[in-house]
Each structure stands twice: as C-alpha cells, then as structure tokens.
Computed example of a mutant assay.
Amino acid sequence: MMGKQSGQIQMVILDIDSMIPENHLLRRIKNCVNFDFIYEKAAPYYSHVGRKSIDPVVLIKMLLIGYLYGIKSERRLEEEVSLNLAYRWFCGIDLMDKVPDHSTFSQNRRRRFQEADIFREIFNEIVLKCIEFGIVSGETGVADGSFLPSNVSWDSRYEAVETVQQSTVKYMEELEAEISSMPGYKEPENVKREKESLKSRTDPECGYIYQARKKGLGYLTEVTVDTSHGIITGVDCYPANRRESDIILEHLKGQPCKYQEIGLDGGYDIGAVHRGLELLGVQGYTAIREY
C-alpha cells in the first residue's frame, strides 16, 4: 500500500548535540578550542550600560563557518546558519532563537570594530592554540603574496593625483636602525612629488596592479603557512600596488609563530630582505630573482 505523509504537526523534545556526528569538522573544532577568550578581547568595544548586544562569540563563529564552507555572502551566511542544524549547534543558537541579521556584520565592521585590531588578536590566539596542540611547529614555513581582486565595478575607477613623499623604502625598524648607523649614511631628502594612480569610488582602499599576469583593482594578501600541517599562521592585506618584498619582514615579525626557516619565491630575492631575515633569526631560502 502506498504511503502518504499526514502532515500533522508533532511536539518533539530534541537533543541537537546527539545529532551532530563525532567526526564532524565543527565538533572537532569545538572540542579543541574554547572561544570564550573572545569576550575578553571584545570587552573594550562595548558599553557597560544599555541593551545587551548580540553575543560576539556567535558573530565570530558565524564568520568562521563562512570561511570553512566557502560562504562569501553574509546574507547567504544568515540563511545557511538558520537552516543548517550543525551550524546552529556550533554557534549555540537554539532552534527557537533568531539568527543574527546579515547587516549586523557590516554595521559592526563600520561602527564598532573599525580601525580595531580585534580580528588579528583573535586570529593570533587561535594560532597559539594550534601551537599548543602541536599542529603548528614553527620550524619551517612558506610565505607569498597573492592578488585579491576587489569586488567593484570597473566603471567605478577614476584617476587620482596624490602628493607623496619620495624616500627610501621602509622595511623593518631593526633594519632601518642598522642602515642609519652605517658610515656615510645620509638621511633621504624630504622630496614631494605628484603621483597618478587608479582608484575605485566604491572601494577607495584598494589599489591598481599592472603586471604581465595580474591586472586590476584589488588587494595584495601576504600569507604564511606552516608546512607541518598546512596551517595558515599569518595574513596581512595591503592595496595591490604594494610590493611583496617591501612588506614581508613586518609580516613575519608580527606573527605569534616565530619560524626557524622560511621559503620565498624570487620576488623576495633582494639584499634588504635577506639581511632582515638574519635580524629576525630566520634562515631564509629564496628562488633566484630573474632580471
């Protein structure tokens, strides 16, 4: 006899925890990482009076889900967390609770966390947890920069003329101090000049890159990966018109993981980078730069 669902509404007592498999990625993360440290990191950005805000741990966990599962749209992230049982369980959102609105993320970035370093602090804390659990060794890493296109229309571009100071490239404080103490060193002249560049009206912080294989408005992301388990230990983002060799030393210096050896491509094969790595106590390996 053919079966047919009755459609009758039932009352059910549900234990969400029992429905999440033991080997599920989010359960494995939750078993290893206690995210309560975020409360202490976020405390300076909240008032002691007024209505209670949305739990900052929930916001960070939702962003983590978006990264892990390739959900790039915050509007879609809200929908996915609302519908997916494992996502709700990981974030601690009960079935009857409302998922934070997608606009909450953009409003927090613009108002509460603008110019704040909280996301880097949270990232570094997770890296330290990885070191504690032995999945980041700090022995050998590789670093490289990558062009990240900005999500803007090409029609939003315009030519901007800026007055900039013409001077030597700044690499790292320790290296600058050593160079300035060398015999015959002269402080560079404070020369100002006009510089033309392409910018975007909708994303003024991005830059224009023009290379043989890379063209467009966007950003330069500098990333370091620990080779023992492929864990990312450092991420920095700059306008795309910056050079990788100019930013690598400060990028490595600012990480909680201090490497013994670092591998780089030929774009970093310049004297200042090699000397800077020595000052950081890192054995550097670069490909030979082709001129």
Score class of each variant (00 low, 15 high):
D36H: 09
D36F: 02
Y39L: 05
K41S: 00
K41R: 08
A42N: 04
P44Q: 01
P44H: 03
Y46G: 02
S47E: 11
S47M: 10
H48P: 09
H48C: 06
V49S: 13
V49E: 03
R51C: 06
R51N: 10
K52Q: 13
I54G: 01
P56V: 02
V57P: 05
V57N: 05
V58L: 07
L59K: 07
I60Q: 06
I60S: 01
I60L: 14
K61S: 02
K61L: 15
M62Q: 11
L63Y: 04
L63R: 14
L63I: 05
L63K: 14
L64A: 10
I65Y: 11
I65W: 11
I65G: 05
G66K: 12
G66T: 06
Y67V: 13
L68E: 08
L68H: 13
L68T: 09
L68M: 15
I71T: 03
I71A: 06
K72S: 14
S73Q: 10
S73F: 13
E74P: 04
R75I: 05
L77W: 12
E79G: 01
E79S: 11
E79C: 06
E80D: 08
V81F: 09
S82C: 12
S82N: 14
L83V: 00
N84Q: 04
N84D: 14
L85T: 13
F90E: 01
F90H: 07
F90Y: 12
C91F: 10
C91H: 09
C91Q: 09
G92L: 04
D94H: 13
L95E: 00
L95I: 14
M96W: 12
K98H: 10
P100K: 03
P100W: 04
H102I: 02
H102K: 07
T104I: 10
F105L: 09
F105K: 10
S106E: 00
S106K: 02
S106L: 09
S106W: 08
Q107P: 00
Q107H: 12
N108T: 00
R110F: 04
R111N: 15
R112A: 04
F113T: 01
Q114W: 05
Q114D: 03
Q114T: 02
E115A: 08
A116D: 05
A116C: 06
A116N: 01
I118E: 00
F119S: 06
R120E: 10
E121C: 04
F123Q: 05
N124H: 15
N124W: 13
N124V: 00
E125M: 07
E125N: 09
E125K: 15
I126A: 03
V127C: 15
E132Y: 13
G134A: 08
I135A: 01
V136Q: 10
V136F: 12
G138I: 07
E139N: 13
V142F: 06
D144A: 06
D144C: 07
G145S: 13
G145C: 08
G145E: 05
F147E: 01
P149D: 01
P149N: 03
